Amino acid sequence: MTLTKQKIGFQHVGSFLRPNGLQQARKAHDKGFFSDSDLREIEDEAIKDLIIKEKEAGLEYVTDGEFRRSYWHLDFFWGFEGVEHIHYGEGYHFAHEETRDDTACLSGKISFNPITHPFIHDFDFVKSVTDDIGGVLPKQTIPAPAQLYIELIRGENNEKVKEFYPNQEDLIADIQKAYHDAIIAFYDEGTRVIQLDDCSWGLFLDENFLATPDGKAYADSGIQDVLLELNNGAIKDLPDDLTINTHICRGNYHSDFAFSGSYAPVADTVFAKENVDTYFLEYDSSRAGGFEPLAKVSGEKNVVLGLLTTKSGQLENRQDIIDRIHEASQYIPLDRLWLSNQCGFASTEEGNVLTEEQQWEKLKLVKSIIDEVWA
């Protein structure tokens, strides 16, 4: 068994398609037909069933599929003290679609309270299920600190930032502390793997955006250093047996994407300097560019190649995936590489355009290739 296999294990990036029964229950809850406790019971059963299926699929680290969330990121932000749920007036603009218009905006100073933040209670349930069935370990996925910063300074949201944080260093410090406190709370409840999902770097990758005046100003603003400071500050001085991974995403909404481009523009920052254990990277299409930026991954950090897409149910050619793994190994040793799908199957509750059967077939193919390449 290789070091990579021992450290990473077979795991999915995070989210799964919401079962139809859960989708209907959420709609009924929103219309007032189900109480909060009614909905939670249904969520509990759906999550327990999912974890059993994850174990049967051979996954070594499992998640709750993000079944209690509407969004992969916003629900976590709304749990912080000083952050509120508002409607922005327009959604995020993806390549072909616009999302719903929810956002996170400041209502005060940011802090973390383990009693009021729902994700701690949510993790407790996952841990109780994994303890009960045995053979799998729970993984907690949360949006990266950099992602919260990007949301808070988005357009008109930034006016609230200026109101509560005239000094940006105070904002950075409070985000770092809130995240650090949250991570320690998850650790205290039993998680040993936390994944920071991060789309904030995507803006630096997209040549079409960077060619615009706004894009050039953004790229030249020094914000990469701010994002790196936020992430590294939040994960500083953590227990030695806690693994911190990151998933760098180009957007995943209803099988659509937000950004294209090679990792080259951020490699010197995020690959060389972010203090994580493992990078989960999207390499499922030509939009991601080549593997050359992997040469910038510093130290003994690992890379999980997201070579199978979650945006389509069509299965990739097995040999093509194996060939690409070996191509990537020209830039980073094979024993520091691993394989996964490129993203979750449902980063928002809408889900991607594929079936539940197809999502499990994708994972089956990933597992079989892992077993062959890293045998």
Rank of each mutant, 00 (worst) to 15 (best):
W78Y: 10
F80C: 04
E84T: 12
S70R: 15
E66M: 04
F94I: 12
L106G: 03
E66P: 07
G89K: 13
L59I: 11
L106F: 00
G89L: 13
P114G: 07
A104K: 05
L106D: 02
E90D: 11
E81V: 13
V83T: 05
H85Q: 13
Y61F: 14
I115A: 12
G79V: 03
I110E: 03
H93W: 10
E66L: 07
R69D: 11
F67M: 10
E97N: 14
H73T: 01
R68K: 13
R68Q: 10
G82E: 09
D102F: 14
F67E: 01
S70P: 00
F76N: 04
G91Y: 08
D64H: 05
P114D: 08
Y88F: 14
L74H: 08
Y88H: 14
F80T: 04
G82Q: 07
H85P: 04
E66V: 10
H96C: 13
G91Q: 13
G79R: 01
L106V: 04
N113V: 04
E60T: 14
W72R: 04
D102C: 05
P114Q: 08
L106N: 00
T103W: 02
D102Y: 14
T103K: 05
E90P: 01
E97T: 15
K109D: 04
D101K: 07
E66W: 03
S107A: 07
T99Y: 13
S107N: 13
Y71L: 13
W72P: 04
H87D: 12
D64N: 08
H96W: 10
D75A: 08
G65H: 07
T103D: 00
G65S: 06
H73W: 10
E97S: 15
E98V: 14
E60M: 09
Y92Q: 12
D102A: 13
G65C: 07
H87E: 14
Y92K: 15
L106W: 00
S107H: 00
F94K: 11
I115Y: 03
Y88V: 05
S107I: 00
I110Q: 06
G79E: 04
Y92P: 03
I110P: 02
G65W: 05
F80H: 02
G108S: 11
L59S: 08
Y71D: 09
H85Y: 11
H93G: 13
L59G: 03
G82D: 12
E90H: 15
I115P: 02
F112G: 05
F80I: 06
Y92C: 02
R68E: 10
H85K: 15
L106E: 03
R69W: 09
